[in-house]
């Protein structure tokens, strides 16, 4: 046992590195969040306790950005998961060509996020964007993709799904490869339908991976920024203003760094709670979640 205790020393460098790049900024942000810190006058920062947090939770803009975040993050992760699982299952059934497709479908994931967002913007732009111009050739008029609040939300969800569904496909397809074929074949012999196989065999077998992709994507979707920033800037109005866009606006447009830090801390707590809730829901086997 004593030799195991000594092993902690080997972990010390990693811990120090982690502390430097993760914990220091985190504590620094928490500290900043209890100050009224206007970036233009950093020397006038004053301690305000929880005022920044109280300001945030008493203003409508915070709640509207939170509900936008839930809707956009929830919508895009759900869409990506459903599409990802469907495509992964199709690829799993393919006898040939699956690998080629798997490589090709990774392209959206490889492209730099801002470049991908700019590309998407030129696709969705009204009248002469790729989609509207294509529709126009059939004498059809597209919706107001980026200009109407409802369509802008949907467009942002579609854009995120375009970019991250390949990640879902990749992970779930890898998971499918690891399922024991005998389980599926036995199910078939016992007369299980495709849906029954999916629900009772495939999904339970994939559960650790499903948990992994959902947690990763939920954390990612809550930090969703670049695509929204380029596509809509949070607009029209506040229709696509998520917590990160609001944080950016507070920090870098209004230069209210203290309040922006408070919002960052609130977002961190929210994401942690959500991730833990997801893990709990997916793993309460005894209570019959699956």
């Amino acid at each position: 046992m004593r030799w195991q205790k000594n092993l902690w020393w080997f972990a010390a460098p990693s811990f120090l590195l982690l502390a430097a790049v993760m914990f220091y900024p985190l504590f620094s942000a928490i500290r900043l969040s209890v100050f009224d810190y206007y970036l233009v006058r950093p020397n006038d920062a004053t301690f305000v306790g929880l005022d920044n947090y109280i300001d945030l939770i008493t203003e409508g803009r915070f709640w509207s950005s939170l509900s936008n975040t839930m809707l956009i993050a929830g919508g895009s992760v759900l869409l990506e998961f459903v599409l990802g699982l469907a495509v992964a299952l199709c690829l799993y059934s393919l006898q040939r060509g699956a690998r080629l497709f798997l490589v090709l479908q990774l392209f959206p994931l490889i492209i730099t996020p801002v470049v991908a967002a700019l590309f998407l913007k030129w696709m969705f732009v009204a009248r002469w964007g790729l989609i509207d111009a294509s529709l126009a050739s059939f004498d059809l008029t597209g919706p107001n993709w980026l200009g109407s609040p409802a369509w802008a939300k949907l467009t942002v969800i579609l854009a995120d799904a375009w970019k991250f569904t390949p990640f879902m496909i990749l992970v779930l397809y890898a998971g499918l490869q690891s399922i024991d074929r005998n389980l599926i074949d036995s199910g078939r012999i016992d007369g299980a339908s495709g849906w029954q196989l999916l629900y009772h065999v495939i999904i339970p077998a994939l559960r650790p991976l499903i948990l992994f992709v959902l947690i990763i994507r939920i954390m990612d979707a809550f930090r969703f920024f670049d695509t929204i920033y380029v596509l809509t800037g949070g607009g029209p109005g506040t229709a696509t203003e998520t917590l990160t866009i609001y944080t950016f606006s507070l920090g870098f447009r209004q230069l209210e760094m203290g309040k922006a830090a408070a919002l960052g801390v609130v977002t961190l707590v929210l994401v942690s709670v959500l991730v833990m809730a997801t893990a709990y829901l997916l793993y309460r086997r005894e209570k019959g979640a699956f």
Partner: peptide, 8 residues
């Protein structure tokens, strides 16, 4: 105005 005028 052209659609998308709020983000143009």
């Amino acid at each position: 105005s052209p659609p998308g005028y709020l983000t143009n």
